[in-house]
Design a protein around this nucleic acid. Structure first.
Lengths: 225, 225
DNA sequence: CAAATATAACAGTATTACTATCGATATATA
DNA sequence: TATATATCGATAGTAATACTGTTATATTTG
């Protein structure tokens, strides 16, 4: 699994970047250190100038890879969702029982990432935290519809659809499979955020509880055959 | 009800503003037009300079009411949650059956706002849309913990706690009342956003469906006595 | 009427978010 | 080997943002 993910390249919409950051050493340093800096200082304070200083490169060189920091965020979060999608597909691939499959899927989606694969320049632990703290900002913009048409959110949508389909396989009569799928994926990020900053609004404070909460939520809504 | 809400002043943490915008005509124009402009151009593009131009006033005068636009957003969203809290309390006040009470509460929380009270300078329809599009940005910051300690999110938390308590009254044995309450409140905003911009990830496209989805979700999780 | 307060107008600063140009170096190709 | 091409760093420049500070005037209040 680790080796598979090591060699695997996640296909990200080519319009998100100007030049593929995977195609050069500088590109990889932009990604690697971009992740660290966004995690450290938050997306608002992060600038390409600061990143340039950190990697001993120039602001204008970074603009040759990404039009702006919003596009970099889209790239990073797309990578994350693509990576999660692979985990989901591999983990649920051989499972024939729909209930077990969905249960496994929910576990993948709701667990917090605790170890870095340490094979690539991408630190998945930090990236998971970036997704928790910043993902919403990538679509809560006036340009959503245009960017959605361009396919910038395709991977995320595909992931939601995969969970939706797993839900349907368990109970084809359930009326809200799409909403339930999106609620679990977005809700998992939210519960993780709450457990870190607003403990009184959640009952989750470790992976186990988050997974249990959502598993319970989903299966109570479905009629198992 | 309308008259009550007309005279009622929503108590907002005094550290959110420099000078109470309710205390002057200029303050009210800042709120009224701030809502319209944030709705029109989105929070990122909105600036105090533009607002000053619109209301025929000066940038620096607006700074006498709010330190920055982030504080203005905190003010507006606090007002919104306070306003919703009143609706919740009034609507559920006389109800003795815990199930009916919770059902009514969920309806209040999940419905989209369709008419403006048109009594005050605050347009609740637009404010509801602002909350859907911008609320997350008010807490997904590096300053959350500090601002939370200052009490800037107190009204929102109180609302979540009220729903949590209603859940507990229906089923005291349920393990995740806080998480379920926060999932419904945040999830309702999210499903509203999806129905507008990402229809394939939701089954909700009007108030009725959103309310039904969450009602179904909650009551399937609880054991009614 | 005097004093206090509120606001408008203006000036100024550091930073952000870019765009454009130029030159050095490395690499590919002919 | 010569030449074209791509890559990147350095520098300069611009418009806008996010403020802060000062002063003059208008308005309220005592």
């Amino acid at each position: 699994m680790k080796h598979l993910l090591q060699t695997l390249k996640i296909g990200i919409n080519e319009n998100i970047y100007v030049k593929d950051p995977e195609s050069s050493d500088l590109g990889k340093r932009i990604i690697e250190n971009g992740i660290v800096m966004i995690h450290e200082m938050g997306f608002e304070s992060f600038t390409f100038k600061k990143l340039g200083d950190r990697i001993g490169s120039n602001e204008s060189s970074i603009y040759r890879y990404f039009e702006n920091k919003h596009k970099l965020l889209l790239y990073l979060t797309s990578w994350y969702w693509g990576w999660l999608e692979y985990q989901l597909v591999f983990a649920t691939n051989g499972i024939s029982d729909p209930g077990t499959k969905l249960e496994t899927g929910i576990a993948i989606i709701t667990k917090s990432i605790e170890e870095d694969s340490s094979f690539s320049h991408i630190n998945e632990v930090l990236l998971n935290k970036i997704v928790i703290n910043e993902y919403s900002k990538s679509y809560l913009t006036k340009e959503v519809d245009k960017e959605n048409k361009e396919g910038y959110f395709a991977i995320y949508k595909r992931l939601v659809h995969r969970i939706r389909d797993m839900i349907r396989e368990v109970d084809g009569t359930y009326s809200y499979p799409s909403s339930l799928a999106s609620t679990v994926i977005e809700g998992a990020l939210h519960q993780n955020f709450l457990s870190e900053h607003f403990a009184s609004m959640t009952d989750c404070n470790e992976t186990v509880e988050t997974t249990q909460y959502f598993t319970n939520l989903v299966f109570n809504s479905l009629n198992k055959t």
